[in-house]
Design a protein around this nucleic acid. Sequence first.
DNA 1: CAGTATCCTTGCGGATACTG
DNA 2: CAGTATCCGCAAGGATACTG
Lengths: 131, 131
Amino acid sequence: MSKCMALLSGLWTPELVWCLSNGPRRFSELRRDNPTITAKVLTGRLRDLEARGVLERNVLATSPPSVEYALTSLGRELLPAITSIVEVGSRLLLREASGKASEGVQPEQANMRTAPKRPSQQRTDLDAQME
Amino acid sequence: MSKCMALLSGLWTPELVWCLSNGPRRFSELRRDNPTITAKVLTGRLRDLEARGVLERNVLATSPPSVEYALTSLGRELLPAITSIVEVGSRLLLREASGKASEGVQPEQANMRTAPKRPSQQRTDLDAQME
DNA sequence: CAGTATCCTTGCGGATACTG
DNA sequence: CAGTATCCGCAAGGATACTG
């Protein structure tokens, strides 16, 4: 679970995948796309993503040498997921900007002696979706 | 971009959302679901997610008092995205387990004097999808 | 039960300088 | 151009103890 989400962990990681979403891109191009990232961090993230199989590194024999980074097919499969998170995310951020409506306070029933027991949850509906 | 992905940032955050995916759950239940999380971190993540509008905190007037956490409607919209990332993630992890096939080495053409110029990329195909 | 309060460590990311 | 090498600060998490 966390292992899988760790695919996109690390600062700048989503941006980099995003930048590669419409074609390969070189090291210096990625630097220009994200002006405030440092070379060290950029190399780090690219190496991580390469190790995880999200992108491929391709050295071109130009002079001076240039290096291209491109999403793999599995890397490309992450794009829809990213967009949907961003979609929800921006709605959430908008909600924060305009004063948070409805601080809901419903008057729960009092005086029940013990709280209800629930099973310790082995399967979730998400597990079901997975198969 | 990173702001939106930060919704699910923080260790344990995806697990917690996952645990709430099939209904509300109490503090101690969440602790049992993730045996190695500490109370401090659990409270922290829950407060974060509440502030971000992903879940709601609901104090029940039982004795002893119990607190229920439940996903909001927007929180629930994150679930499909999470599952698709996990989907790709597990395929990636499998690939690592069984020796990584095809370390592709294609013989790129040499001796071109300069590398190709590409535009500095203002819009991506993902931006197009968003509208 | 559902948390706070404190302390302490690790490591991520930024800044800066240098290289094949 | 496409990186590596160091140093540093700080915040996120873990461990542990205590509370209404």
